[in-house]
Design a protein around this nucleic acid. Structure first.
Ligand SMILES: [Zn+2]
Ligand SMILES: [Zn+2]
Ligand SMILES: [Zn+2]
Ligand SMILES: [Zn+2]
Lengths: 365, 365
DNA sequence: AAATGAGGTCACGAGGTCAT
DNA sequence: ATGACCTCGTGACCTCATTT
């Protein structure tokens, strides 16, 4: 797949810690997670725009970006990904491409068609397993990516339309993320802010709407054959995204820094060694300085990212009415309204229970 | 590897700041970049030929040479080099040797063969699975995956074709660079020119569009097995090189020195500390003397070097319609024209997305 | 079996050090 | 000021558990 690293934009090496990332960002996140102390404060007001070239210039902002795109050490999963997951990724890619190119364009083809085409290809190959790509030359191998748009060929034209509804409102993950973060957001997110007063004023809506970066987002799920999809990972993603946004917008900052220790924030169920080490670091230094906040936010965001995954237990992929969720989601229900997405997610039990990875996995399988 | 320092010719210690250099030139560039003021004007009309023995004689010309070979503090890469990079370096070396020896000679062996042999060795080790994508994955590692190439798959074939044409026209990086610079170029480049009137006649073409100087350039890529190489780093390099030349020849100088401050030139997105220091230096001294110009050009060239890598963000591997871009680019369109190269690069998403190092790394893997 | 990601390994290069 | 040498963060590649 042609996925790009959600953090730096380089071609992604895979889905790591909850997001498509390159090897570098994967390793960076893995290392940093257990060694926050090694990250020095941003010298640019935590507003660095991370890209392939400068990703090593500011560790603070790189980590921030990692968290922003949903990376988390919890809930990781192993094993081969389902074909649906792959398909979904493809669709998402196409969508993004489409959005970029013909942003204002008039959608000719309903992407339903596009999707169907894809499905056809898939089913054909499926027997062999060829995986998507196989059939369509373009796609090529699952991993290898197809660079191309695999999907593509036939679809490109149609593809763009999928999102016509959603896109406008919902920022594409990538597009939304890559661009410089709104200063507001950036300021909010200052993991390494000199501390100081927290940007509570941001709590409002404006911020909420922007966040977006659902690890994966696509409108395709509505097309997925019900039988295949137990739980729409797609929706889930949206939900997650929404949740994240809520988190960000309503994050309850410690009114008195000292009052809430980061420890409290850490996940309860989490046995993760890594997590512990982080907390230890935090406790270690008693001062409630910038360092404190840095770690505080780190934990906060991490918990948020982790939580989205934890729900799974509660609602297994099936539990929630598939049909309802799948269909109703963004499309039918609030198809027009952009902000909607969030709503859907929240209302949809299914989604809530899923995590990025899980979501992806659950579907179909 | 037997690489030589691109600046002074001494055996290289590694790939530093975008070029193979010795420890001395590496350190020199690292120091000078942040302390331009320490560099005094050349007393030889900026025409000093830098070599191992005299490299410390004229800092101005040494720095100039550094920039000429593509050194830049931005976008440096860390970490281990990909196997492809190594292979590429080997090929490049061989090619150079070949060129030197049988310059006018009639090539018996297309070096395609040579390359293929190399590739075979390499692929044997890794692959197994290569199949997919083309095989390309040749490279082995699981994750690596794609990183690279993704995009390309479909393009690979085209890519190499591109170059078949180009090579002749495109000077090999090394060979092109090492030799004395064309006088025009040299004059333009006078970083430490006594100042005097700027080469306004050069102002012409759009600076913006030009991209960059390729640290490494080689003609080999055209030979790369399509399947293996997703994106021809080789081409990219050529392109970059060509572009650099264009830049040099057509660079638009500030009509009114005072009007355009070097600061404006600096990258927007660039948070690089180093860059800042440079700008600071510049601002520091108010006089618009030779010093001003020196720094102005320094920034200009630096930006140029930096930009070559930056494009990545702009055109993600996917964004552009693969088919269209890939094919249409240099081939069909202006396939014959040599200057074309630049076009290809710009049009070709693949190339754009890559940077020197990245190029090398990315390919197939 | 095949695929896939978390972790681990260690080649590398940016930076820093310090004798020259 | 230079450049040989050292430190350590980075990231390409590999191993292996996990999942399909
Ligand atoms: Zn990355
Ligand atoms: Zn920063
Ligand atoms: Zn040298
Ligand atoms: Zn000189």
């Amino acid at each position: 797949m042609n996925q790009q690293c959600k953090v730096c934009g380089e071609p992604a090496a895979g889905f790591h810690f909850g997001a498509f990332t390159c090897e570098g960002c994967k390793s960076f996140f893995g290392r940093s997670y257990n060694n926050l102390s090694s990250i020095s404060e941003c010298k640019n007001n935590s507003e660095c725009v991370i890209n392939k070239k400068n990703r090593t210039a500011c560790k603070a902002c790189r980590l921030k970006k990692c968290l922003m795109v949903g990376m988390s050490k919890n809930g990781s999963r192993y094993g081969r990904r389902s074909n649906w997951f792959k398909i979904h990724c493809l669709l998402q890619e196409q969508q993004q491409q489409r959005e970029q190119h013909q942003q204002s364009n008039h959608p000719h083809q309903p992407h339903d068609l596009m999707f169907l085409n894809l499905m056809d290809d898939y089913s054909k190959n499926n027997h062999n397993r060829a995986s998507l790509s196989s059939s369509s030359p373009s796609i090529s191998s699952p991993d290898s990516h197809n660079s191309d748009s695999s999907v593509e060929i036939g679809d490109k034209k149609k593809a763009h339309q999928l999102h016509h509804k959603i896109p406008p409102k919902m920022p594409t993950p990538t597009s939304a993320i890559n661009p410089p973060l709104p200063s507001q957001l950036a300021s909010f997110f200052q993991l390494m802010p000199p501390l100081g007063p927290l940007p509570l004023h941001l709590v409002g809506s404006p911020f909420t709407k922007m966040m977006p970066p659902p690890p994966l987002a696509s409108s395709a799920h509505s097309f997925l054959p019900p039988s295949f999809f137990s739980s729409p990972f797609h929706d889930s993603l949206h939900h997650l995204y929404a949740q994240q946004q809520n988190f960000l917008s309503s994050a309850n900052l410690p009114s008195s820094p000292l009052a809430n220790l980061p420890n409290n924030i850490s996940n309860n169920n989490n046995n993760n060694n890594n997590k512990e080490s982080i907390n230890n670091n935090l406790l270690h230094n008693g001062s409630k300085s910038a360092d404190f906040y840095q770690k505080y936010y780190f934990n906060k965001i991490n918990k948020f990212n982790d939580d989205r995954d934890e729900n799974d237990d509660v609602t297994p992929s099936n539990s929630p009415p598939l049909k309802v969720d799948v269909n109703s989601p963004s499309h039918s229900t609030s198809s027009n309204s952009p902000p909607i997405i969030c709503d859907d997610i929240q209302n949809n039990p299914i989604d809530l229970s899923m995590k990025n990875e899980d979501l992806l996995n659950n579907n179909t399988n």
